[in-house]
Design a binder for these strands. Structure first.
Lengths: 224, 224
DNA sequence: GTCTATACTCTGATAGAC
DNA sequence: GTCTATCAGAGTATAGAC
């Protein structure tokens, strides 16, 4: 499976960076816009590598090139920064699954989904780890969205997969677990990146090799 | 795939609980032994659900039924508690892979490994999350072991898999990535437990369903 | 061995000058 | 809008009584 760095990632990248969030002050001047995104960029770095409680406003402010009170001028609290990041992320995170087309060719659609998810892991590993941190810690700030939008979307797409199975166009499998397996396999390359690289050693491109491997895996798995 | 809660888990459970760690004061009296394991039990709870920095000694001491200074009588620092947990964990964590027998029947050996890993996720989810937290945050306190023991063991077992592939006894695949896929798929059920349960809804047993799904997946994947 | 008291640092957040 | 100064609380760790 060839991962293209092209159109899809660029579009999603723009979404991940620019989509306004609910708890964010609406940017008005150019300076405000610049500072706000500097804060979110820095916060993504810090939250994704230390978790919510492990991250400090000092670290974020430093990385954003602002003073701590100045950061708190843009966001009312640490929690608000985190929420702003998560709410921007979740929506974009679901787009690849939304794009799974019930009228497409089953194999192509699923393979494209796997590929898009792997691209997300490759191009937005910090976002993946931010999400993983949140889930790992019990999803205290995101549970509603998971039980709501996420579950709704997954149920809908699981029904699509199930229909394809009924028609004998792909192998019969538990559709929800098929989706979990795509998440697990693709996100592993982002979330466990340091372990993957350490175990593979020098001279490997985990994402390229992973892409090939996953293409084979799902081809064999889905063949009716 | 039927997950048995029996012998294997009990043995590993004992290891995870009782194996002495390097940075731990050697228990001597019965009281010391009891307090030390109460601390480690409590620390596992807290570290696995909040990460290293997110965990506090207050929480751990409370959960262990001790005062904070008393906790610090048994372990010299927060870091020491964490290290004690991790070093006990890592060794036991690798046992299932060690047990992969080069002289066994390839399919049986790999399936047994998958099953054991899934049992670990089911029976020791906190340990899995402790490990995931550590890797996610860049493995600052465990990198040496990953580049050392873990890599050595994986390389060794990858060679076994590769030999089986050469003999045509299982399908040809990138052996390291095959191992990653087992880790990713089985650990997902522990690490993303709240998401899996929220998406599945009521009335599901994620681990039982996952066991069946993974058995099918690897049967199809490995068939020559 | 265990506790109370406390030292000292870090952290999130606010006040108020400019 | 941005900064310095600062507060109150939480955090790790230690001293010292018992």
């Amino acid at each position: 499976m060839r991962l293209h760095s092209a159109r899809f990632s660029i579009i999603l990248g723009a979404q991940l960076r620019d989509k306004p969030a609910r708890d964010m002050k609406k940017p008005q001047t150019r300076i405000q816009e610049k500072n706000t995104s500097a804060i979110l960029e820095a916060a993504l770095d810090v939250f994704s590598s230390h978790g919510f409680r492990g991250a400090t406003l000092d670290q974020i402010a430093d990385a954003a090139g602002l003073s701590k009170p100045n950061l708190l001028y843009y966001f009312p609290s640490k929690e608000a920064v985190h929420t702003a990041l998560l709410s921007r992320l979740l929506d974009s995170w679901l787009d690849p699954l939304r794009a799974l087309n019930p009228d497409g060719r089953p194999m192509d659609e699923i393979m494209a989904y796997v590929q898009r998810k792997l691209e997300l892991s490759r191009d937005f590993p910090r976002e993946s780890r931010l999400f993983a941190n949140e889930i790992l810690q019990g999803a205290p700030r995101i549970m509603a969205a998971i039980e709501g939008d996420l579950k709704t979307l997954v149920d809908e797409k699981a029904a699509v997969l199930s229909a394809w199975m009924d028609q004998g166009r792909i192998a019969r499998l538990a559709p929800h677990h098929l989706i979990f397996s795509i998440w697990a396999l693709t996100q592993h390359y982002a979330d466990f990146d340091v372990q993957v690289r350490a175990v593979l050693g020098e001279g490997h491109d985990p994402f390229a090799e992973g892409g090939t491997f996953l293409e084979t895996l799902f081809a064999k798995l889905l063949r009716p």
